[in-house]
């Protein structure tokens, strides 16, 4: 649509432009300062991280060719043929990989549930409105912070030495990290709860546990479940790489295949992992929508 608006005359335009400049100049200065600081930080970081665009562009073909190699058989009778031409041969280890995927899901499930239960308990000690005393609150908050900040793989790496190789250290690492992450979210939910039911329960002589059970829990349970389901999605992705440090799941085989350049196996396992992750995402999203829907109609 060709719109032609007549330009204002100069003497009417000038005060408008001046007002615009005055209104924006202060912010423009701030933005410029922010950008300059950011640029400085990027320059320092590039130097520290050894960023080398020349090397990247010289070898960028390897990135593409890596995926080309992933799509072809690297050994056996069908060497050089595209993997989809012989799906049976491509998925030769399907039985073992599916078993490892089940183990991965078990790590994620057990870790999420145990961690969520831990976070659930700690959130009531850490929430400002329900904390028993400032000292226990401080302890609970710091403990959850520690669980959250140390990455789950670091816990797994240490646990592998304490508990031995296998899925058990993976479960424990996921559980501890989940406890920290969910504990913080749960605490925020509890702090945002309506306090009137709590006052009602306290006024009628309810104990701390009864207050939580009958005044707080009904308000927050659906939020807790929703956050836990989201965390489960994250943990499935996390559990898939637990094997990189020897803590069980499909990561053990994937790491080995990547290190030994068994490209067809790598792509087969990646496809299985991505399919599982998408399936879980879809399932948990459907569950969450049903929960939220029930909440809305209640």
């Amino acid at each position: 649509m060709p719109t032609q608006l007549p330009r204002l005359s100069e003497d009417r335009l000038r005060p408008l432009l001046a007002a615009h400049a005055a209104a924006t100049s202060a912010r423009a200065g701030k933005t410029a300062l922010g950008l300059a600081l950011f640029g400085l930080a990027v320059a320092a970081a590039s130097w520290s991280a050894g960023v080398d665009p020349v090397k990247l562009f010289a070898h960028i073909d390897r990135f593409g060719s890596y995926f080309v190699r992933l799509a072809h058989f690297d050994s056996g009778d069908y060497t050089g043929q595209i993997v989809l031409s012989h799906p049976g041969e491509w998925m030769w280890g399907l039985k073992r990989w599916l078993r490892l995927l089940v183990e991965t899901l078990a790590i994620a499930y057990a870790g999420t549930l145990v961690g969520a239960l831990g976070g659930f308990v700690f959130s009531f000690f850490a929430a400002r409105n329900l904390a028993r005393s400032p000292a226990t609150r401080w302890l609970a908050v710091r403990f959850l912070e520690f669980c959250r900040t140390v990455p789950d793989l670091v816990f797994a790496l240490i646990f592998v030495y304490a508990f031995g190789l296998g899925a058990l250290p993976g479960v424990l690492a996921v559980a501890i990290h989940t406890q920290g992450a969910l504990g913080k979210l749960f605490t925020e939910v509890v702090e945002n709860a309506d306090m009137r039911p709590v006052e009602g329960l306290v006024a009628s002589g309810g104990s701390w546990v009864e207050t939580i059970r009958f005044a707080v829990l009904p308000q927050i349970l659906s939020n807790f479940v929703s956050y836990t389901l989201l965390r489960f999605e994250v943990n499935v992705r996390g559990a898939a790489v637990m094997g990189f440090v020897g803590a069980g799941g499909i990561g053990v085989d994937l790491m080995e295949a990547i290190r030994k350049f068994y490209y067809a196996d790598v792509s087969a396992m990646l496809v299985l992992i991505i399919a599982t992750v998408m399936l879980i995402d879809w399932l948990t999203e459907a569950l969450r929508h049903r929960l939220i829907g029930r909440e809305a109609t209640r």
Partner: peptide, 17 residues
């Protein structure tokens, strides 16, 4: 079921702790 698959047992947890 997940504990069985991941080989979680009180004995292992105890000695690991």
């Amino acid at each position: 079921a997940a504990f069985v698959v991941t080989d979680v047992s009180f004995g292992r947890i105890g000695s690991g702790l």
